[in-house]
């Protein structure tokens, strides 16, 4: 989802990026990408993770962060063909837009009470680089483009309604099944060993 989008083609690639990365994440389930009659795009993502288990909680947070930055990464890598190297937080914010960036940040902040903002921003930057590198793979880029084209075609066929691209539609599912992507991304800057314990008296 992006407030500051640069036209329908970029927006369709943005949302297809969310869909592809969400589908690849073991810790998550993905429903559909929506292009609403209000003009925004959105991809439904769910998780069954048990947050009382620290490792499971971290894995689901890492997956959510990867999905959150995937729209911006797809725009950069797939839509504009840029292979990112040394990006700054400002660069990543410009690609993802403020809503997706803060979604990634919010998931990271849920790892513990009041983590450091410096660590959060460094983590978002790291995960963005990893996701962008994964999307830069030729086959993956082609997959994102293909799904983006389908979403955009539906938008153009029905200009005033809400259109959807569901991950379980047979053709979409077949395309997604061919993707070769990491099933999880590591977090290294924000995790703490002591996730759910506190001292009590």
């Amino acid at each position: 989802m992006k407030r500051e989008h640069d036209g329908p083609v970029a927006l369709s690639v943005h949302e297809a990026g969310h869909l592809v990365i969400a589908h690849s994440q073991e810790a998550l389930t993905v429903g559909e990408s929506i292009w609403s009659d209000q003009g925004f795009t959105y991809t439904n993502v769910g998780s069954e993770a048990d947050w009382t288990k620290p490792a499971e909680k971290v894995r689901s947070i890492a997956a959510q962060v990867a999905v959150a930055v995937a729209g911006g990464a797809a725009e950069l890598v797939v839509h504009r063909g840029v292979l990112p190297e040394e990006l700054t937080v400002e660069d990543v914010l410009a690609e993802t837009g403020s809503i997706d960036f803060q979604l990634a940040q919010e998931w990271l902040a849920l790892q513990r009470h009041d983590p450091s903002q410096d660590a959060i921003e460094a983590e978002v930057l790291d995960v963005f680089h990893l996701v962008a590198a994964a999307l830069a793979d030729r086959g993956t880029s082609a997959l994102v483009s293909e799904l983006a084209d389908r979403l955009l075609a539906r938008r153009r066929r029905e200009e005033n309604g809400t259109v959807r691209l569901g991950s379980t539609e047979p053709e979409v599912a077949a395309l997604l099944a061919g993707a070769r992507l990491p099933a999880e991304y590591p977090l290294t800057r924000t995790t703490t060993a002591n996730l759910i314990s506190v001292t009590t008296h």
Binding site: L93, F101, Q105, H113, P115, S116, D118, I120, T200
Partner: peptide, 18 residues
């Protein structure tokens, strides 16, 4: 009722670059 003590925070999350 009992006292619950968390860990010291590492900092304060802001909006990006805030």
């Amino acid at each position: 009722a009992y006292v619950e003590v968390d860990e010291e925070s590492y900092g304060t999350p802001t909006a990006p670059e805030g």
